[in-house]
Design a protein around this nucleic acid. Structure first.
Lengths: 343, 343
DNA sequence: GCTTCTTGTTTACGCGCGTAAAGAAGATTG
DNA sequence: CAATCTTCTTTACGCGCGTAAACAAGAAGC
């Protein structure tokens, strides 16, 4: 037997014998009423099925409990995982997460923010596209609505930024690769659409120089977010033209590495460490599939639990304080190396 | 210079010299006003920045323009792609897509529907978990709100269902495998959480029998959606104990196949066709990464453009008609074989 | 028992917009 | 040009809830 559905708070007040303003208080914050009345309300809620009309609530409330989550590319399993984590954390804090993907497009990113604006979110967690983002428009949005950036920074935009320390993480893997074999060449897209690509190149160059090697950049052509395919095509080309300057490749991210591994496999190049192996390949991000590549991919894991958790905590603090922070907070978390078979 | 922001329609009416009811008509449907007034409104819109308050709109409108999209697992690139396609199509039709993932949990699926209910969507596109779904609760939801199921059917739930013809698609690949080598064993999870697993097993058995072979089921243990890992562990076990009844494996889906390929690689088993290959592996779904496995995965592509497109079309038709259809429509689209290197 | 403080009730208004009805103004037809 | 139809304006009400103010009723302290 289903409980009877009640449509309005007025009606529920009559049925439960509690005044509507008290009910309103309860639904805003159950602890704001005396425990005895809270029990009465919850007893009534178990007899009748009632949920406040969300549109009426949000129309009148100065602040909604919506939190926007914008990621650059949801079809990328990395961002899918981060988004999932953020959704869960939001819900646990009593907020309503709204997940949007920019699908790699700056236009779409701006549209996402604009559609978020129309639902008046309490705050937004934004992983921007990066260099391709329309800085002006992001900034205009962040001035109006509390926004914490994560994964990729856009200078001076938003109230805070949390991401990975690419200098440290790339340094880590470069150091490992140099210590265990030939210094790595850096495989990347010349015009990468994804965040952090630039930073990783710089980090690579710096790490190589500091270890006394000269950087070897393999900046390949290719547009869009189809990284695996670009890795496959371009690495294939490099292998066939014998243009690889070394037997070790560090890829700007794991998705490129997946393509590179595929190209090597197709051409009979054994990837791995030690005897009988022609190539070492490493990546960055610890992509969910990195464990399943052939061979399993050596990479650097971002601490995205910390990034996601800290970003949300900071945003909730800003929302809770009711005021925008004076100073912009920035924190970079360290990556940790994940040694597998490919390098 | 940014256009001046206007908060209410009243205010915008005063500024633009158009009455509020006319503006209301315009925002509901720009073609419902005379072209000359439409021009005047749009001219004003370019001078002032105004978007109607979405909460006030939806509170009063009997029907919102929200369309819920619920997928079983968004971190699965297959569903991520389908969801992305649906989002785009929705937006193009002037609806507002709201994407939710059940994260593989039946509880979460019900929660998703419940939270959709609170935003009173015009309709919902639901890819259910399948056998694990709570049929009663899905049904109760579908009785209240126009809902089209896709990808996976739940008997008699919803107004329509569009999916793949597993019998046909599995038949296709079984026939191919039998024609070009040893008949395949079927690699699957004994307790698969994902949709269609059961149907594919039945389809496999039927196809094998009709070709005069006896089915060989490899139903492995494992819980949850971590398919690649289950494929990796269990296929590894089967290889090491020499328990494979044939040199050809058909996996229930590509994600399992990715794990199987990884297991084979780690044990030095050459996967592919022809001379010097010890194992053939095929999958199902044409997962976005199937192209990049080592070797590239032979699989069956679902026609999910058709599935997504038709599902939305049907839903919009139901919404447009204002009435629920008498009969439940069902259509299965055929898959097409994708020949690569693994089988 | 009283006073004081907390919590609940009653009453009332407003949020921004949908929408209905009646009449005025424009467009269209012959 | 008048007659008719279409579109717009004016006026008014309601949606379901947040919230404020004044007051009543419980709880707590002495």
């Amino acid at each position: 037997m289903q409980p009877q559905r009640v449509r309005t708070m007025e009606e529920f007040a009559a049925l439960s014998g509690i005044s509507r303003p008290t009910l309103s208080k309860y639904f805003n914050d159950p602890t704001s009423v005396r425990p005895s009345t809270r029990e009465r309300i919850e007893a009534a809620l178990s007899r009748y099925e009632y949920t406040p009309n969300i549109y009426a609530i949000n129309q009148n409330r100065q602040l909604t409990r919506n939190i926007g989550i914008v990621v650059p590319y949801l079809a990328d399993p990395f961002f899918a995982e981060v988004a999932r984590m953020l959704e869960r954390l939001c819900a646990k804090s009593g907020f309503n997460p709204i997940l949007l993907s920019s699908h790699g497009s700056a236009d779409r990113e701006v549209e996402n923010l604009s559609s978020l604006r129309s639902i008046r979110p309490a705050g937004v967690l934004l992983a921007p596209l990066g260099r391709r983002s329309r800085r002006e428009e992001l900034d205009a949005f962040c001035r109006d609505i509390p926004t914490v950036l994560f994964d990729c920074d856009v200078e001076d935009v938003g109230d805070a930024f949390f991401g990975s320390n690419n200098t440290q993480s790339i340094g880590l893997i470069v150091e490992y690769l140099c210590r265990t074999g030939e210094p790595p060449a850096f495989f990347e897209m010349a015009q990468a659409p994804n965040p952090n690509a630039q930073k990783r190149r710089v980090a690579y160059e710096r790490a190589m120089v500091s270890l006394g090697h000269s950087p070897m950049l393999l900046s390949v052509e290719g547009q869009g977010w189809d990284f695996e395919n670009i890795g496959l095509q371009e690495a294939g080309r490099l292998i066939e033209t014998r243009a690889l300057p070394t037997n070790t490749l560090l890829c700007s991210n794991d998705r490129l590495a997946i393509g590179v591994l595929s190209a090597a496999y197709e051409r009979g190049l054994r990837v791995g460490i030690g005897h009988g192996h022609a190539l070492r390949v490493a990546g960055h991000d610890d992509h969910p599939y990195a464990r399943y590549t052939c061979p399993a991919l050596t990479t650097v894991a971002q601490n995205y639990e910390a990034i996601a958790g800290t970003s949300l905590d900071r945003l909730l603090a800003i929302i809770g304080s009711g005021a925008r922070p004076g100073a912009r907070e920035t924190c970079l978390f360290e990556g940790s190396i994940v040694l597998r078979k490919s390098a």
